[in-house]
C-alpha cells in the first residue's frame, strides 16, 4: 500500500518537472526572440504574430530574428529590418505617426462624438417631454376606509 502510494506521489511530482525545466531553460536570447516575434505580424496568417504562428514563414522569421540577435543587432534594428522589407503591415501595432494616428484616435473620438450626440438627444427629450400636472390624491370613500380598517383588525 505504502509503496504504491509512494510511486503514485512520485509520478505526480514528475509531471510538472519538464514544464518548469523548459521555462528555466529559456535563455536571454529566447526571451528576446519572443519579445520581438510577438510584435511582428505573420504575413500569411492575418491576425497572428510570428511567435504564435506555426506557419513556415513565421518559423523562418523567428530564425532570422535569432540569427540577427546572435550578430549583435538590437531589438529596434531587427524590427526596423522587417519594417524595411514588409512595411507597416508587419507590425502588430501600427506605428503612431502620420495618418496612422487616425487608427489610434478614431475609436475614442467616435466615443466622444457619440456621447455628445447622446447627451444632446437625451437633454432634448427631457426638456421637450411635457410633465403631467400634479393632482391631489382622491379622498378615500367610506367603503374603502371600512375595508382597510377591517383588514388591519384581522
Amino acid at each position: 500500500m505504502s509503496i504504491r502510494l509512494t510511486w503514485c506521489l512520485a509520478a505526480l511530482l514528475m509531471i510538472p518537472l519538464p514544464l518548469s525545466a523548459a521555462v528555466q531553460d529559456e535563455t536571454d536570447v529566447d526571451i528576446q526572440v519572443r519579445e520581438i516575434a510577438k510584435t511582428l505580424r505573420c504575413t500569411v496568417c492575418q491576425t497572428e504574430n510570428i511567435w504564435e504562428s506555426g506557419a513556415p514563414l513565421a518559423q523562418q522569421m523567428r530564425g532570422v530574428i535569432r540569427d540577427r540577435i546572435a550578430l549583435g543587432h538590437s531589438t529596434e534594428e531587427i524590427r526596423a529590418y522587417f519594417l524595411s522589407r514588409y512595411g507597416d503591415y508587419i507590425l502588430m501595432e501600427p506605428p503612431k505617426h502620420g495618418v496612422n494616428w487616425l487608427i489610434w484616435v478614431a475609436p475614442f473620438l467616435l466615443l466622444v462624438i457619440g456621447g455628445f450626440f447622446l447627451y444632446k438627444e437625451v437633454t432634448h427629450w427631457v426638456r421637450d417631454t411635457p410633465t403631467p400636472p400634479s393632482q391631489p390624491e382622491p379622498p378615500l370613500d367610506d367603503e374603502a376606509r371600512k375595508r382597510i380598517e377591517r383588514e388591519l383588525k384581522s
Binding site: 500569411v44 513556415p56 514563414l57 523562418q60 522569421m61 530564425g63 532570422v64 522587417f82 522589407r85 514588409y86
Partner: peptide, 13 residues
Amino acid sequence: LKGQLAIDYGVYG
C-alpha cells in the same frame, strides 16, 4: 535554404 532570401525581398507567398 533558410527563407532568408524570401524575407529579404518581403515575400509572403
